[in-house]
Amino acid sequence: MSWLGPEEWQAVGLSIKVAFWATLLSLPFGVLCAYALARWTFRGKMVLNGLIHLPLILPPVVTGYLLLMAFGRRGPVGEFLEAQLGLVLAFRWTGAVLAAAVMAFPLMVRAIRLGIEAVDVRLEEAAATLGAPAWAVFLTVTLPLILPGIVAGTALAAAKAMGEFGATITFVSNIPGETRTLPSAIYSFLQVPGGEAPALRLVAVSVAVALLALAASEWLARRAARRITGA
């Protein structure tokens, strides 16, 4: 695929890396939040629900700015992370991972929550009467049954993370090789004369990746659904 220049390759590679880590790291939290929202009743449930969905409603630039205030080197969380763990997020690719994860999180949680709500609680009761403790019921019954929801949520989140632009550019800027992801690269190419050709190539890559992800998730979800309908 020599038709992509090194700069373009870098952007594509970075986007995949960012999307991969953003999705992977948010998945356990996504399952936990979806489970809590679907099954538990607790004080502050509305607040949690609102917080999770906020990035979906806020302008992405606002989310990015809030992240910068909290996770920037002088932000309360950013300062703590740098002092305790040596982890710097602002203007680093790790920050792009955080921005992408936060923006993709509501989509992931929604899809998984729908999956959990569709699970027949009576099957979990049956598992309990067979001697399975709560954690085992979750791992051996609930989790396999919500697999289609998890697959769908993961695919949606990965696609969103690949294309995240507003919050990312506000939080971690647009540094080649560090934070210049695919959408940032397209944006940058369009800002300079003669950049249309590389921009168009990246657009083609974006479309191809999106279609591929969609097809893969569709196939996986269908396979998982077939497994659990018991046919």
């Binding site: 027949d120 009576r122 099957l123 009761e125 049956a126 598992a127 309990a128 009467t129 067979l130 001697g131 399975a132 403790p133 709560a134 019954v141 396999p144 049954l145 497994r227 659990i228 309908t229 018991g230």
Partner: peptide, 20 residues
């Protein structure tokens, strides 16, 4: 005691087999 500690085998009217 939680259901899983009681050790009653329960056969439900609707079987409730695990579909997966």
């Amino acid at each position: 005691l939680a259901p899983h500690r009681r050790r009653f085998g329960y056969v439900f009217q609707d079987a409730r087999l695990f579909p997966h």
